[in-house]
Computed example of a mutant assay.
Amino acid sequence: MANWNDSRMTVTESAARGRNGASERDAGLRSYMLSVYNYMAGGVLLTGIVAYLVAHSALGAAIIFSPLRWLVILAPLAFVFALSAGVNRFKLSTLKTLFWSYAAVMGLSMAVIFFVYTGTSIAQTFFATAAAFAGLSVFGYLTKKDLSGIGSFLIMAVFGLIVASLLNMFIHSSSLQFGISALGVLIFAGLTAYDTQQIKSMYFMTSGGEYAGKMAVMGALSLYLDFINMFSFLLNFMGDRR
């Protein structure tokens, strides 16, 4: 009789520990994803503030309409490469500094949209992008379907999009630009769901601590890039030019 009671207690304790472990894991995942979204949203906000201030300053206009604009346009790429290459070598504090610096420099690059499109259309496109991004990210978080195959295809499509964009810089085809914008919206919409699923999966592959913090920053960078690119391509459709 005593042995049966001991066995029952062992099973009960084991089940309780399993439930507690699952609860802790779920709480950790929620905290991790919240950190990712906070970084991403903060980066978008910083980019928007910098873009607005630069566009409405005399210095900003001088930079954008001078050869320095190419430095401003290409500078964000250096930050992306630095973040990607240094994720294992840099401290978490360094990655955070690079991320916020990247978001600020991206604001310099994005300032040009205020000279091309009306403020109303920029605001409308931003909120449309935010709504679409939220829905797609939630889908990527909740879906049980493995999006790896789709993600691999979309990543290859991004390279094709870059080549087409570079080509159109020389031929200036409005039809090609329309096609690039349409594909760009679809590609980065799909990548939003894919990247969210990948970020969620990465949590279960980390042991916590500083490395989990680094993965949160890199996850935020991926979602930030998805948002900014989807916004930029969508603006070509919805934006009213000045």
Rank of each mutant, 00 (worst) to 15 (best):
A2H: 14
W4M: 15
S7G: 08
S7F: 12
T12H: 12
E13L: 13
S14H: 15
S14R: 15
R17D: 06
R17K: 10
G21V: 11
A22W: 06
S23R: 15
R25K: 11
A27W: 12
R30Y: 12
R30E: 13
Y32A: 00
L34A: 08
L34G: 04
V36D: 01
Y37D: 04
A41G: 11
G42C: 02
G43C: 00
L46G: 05
T47A: 01
I49H: 05
Y52N: 09
L53K: 07
V54A: 09
A58K: 08
L59E: 12
G60M: 07
G60N: 07
A62W: 06
I63K: 01
I63A: 05
F65D: 08
F65R: 10
L68I: 10
R69N: 11
L71P: 11
A75I: 02
P76Q: 00
L77P: 08
A78L: 15
A78C: 13
V87M: 14
F90S: 06
F90A: 14
F90D: 06
K91S: 12
T94M: 12
L95A: 05
T97M: 10
L98Q: 06
F99K: 02
W100G: 05
W100N: 09
Y102Q: 05
Y102A: 00
S109L: 03
I113P: 11
I113Q: 14
I113T: 15
V116T: 12
T118K: 08
T118M: 06
T120L: 12
T120P: 06
S121E: 07
S121G: 07
S121H: 04
S121K: 01
A123G: 05
Q124T: 15
Q124E: 15
Q124D: 14
T125C: 06
T125I: 04
A131I: 13
G135Q: 01
L136D: 03
S137Y: 07
F139T: 04
F139E: 05
K145T: 13
D146R: 04
L147N: 06
L147W: 02
L147M: 04
I150W: 13
I155C: 05
M156F: 10
V158M: 15
I162V: 14
A164W: 05
S165E: 05
L166C: 07
N168Q: 03
M169I: 13
H172L: 14
L176Y: 10
F178D: 00
G179A: 11
L183V: 13
G184F: 00
L186E: 10
G190P: 00
A193H: 00
T196G: 05
T196I: 07
T196V: 10
I199F: 09
K200G: 08
T206I: 14
G209M: 04
Y211W: 11
G213L: 01
K214A: 02
V217Q: 00
G219E: 02
S222D: 11
Y224E: 00
L225A: 14
D226P: 02
F227D: 00
I228A: 12
M230W: 05
M230G: 10
F231T: 01
F231D: 01
F233K: 03
F233V: 07
D240S: 13
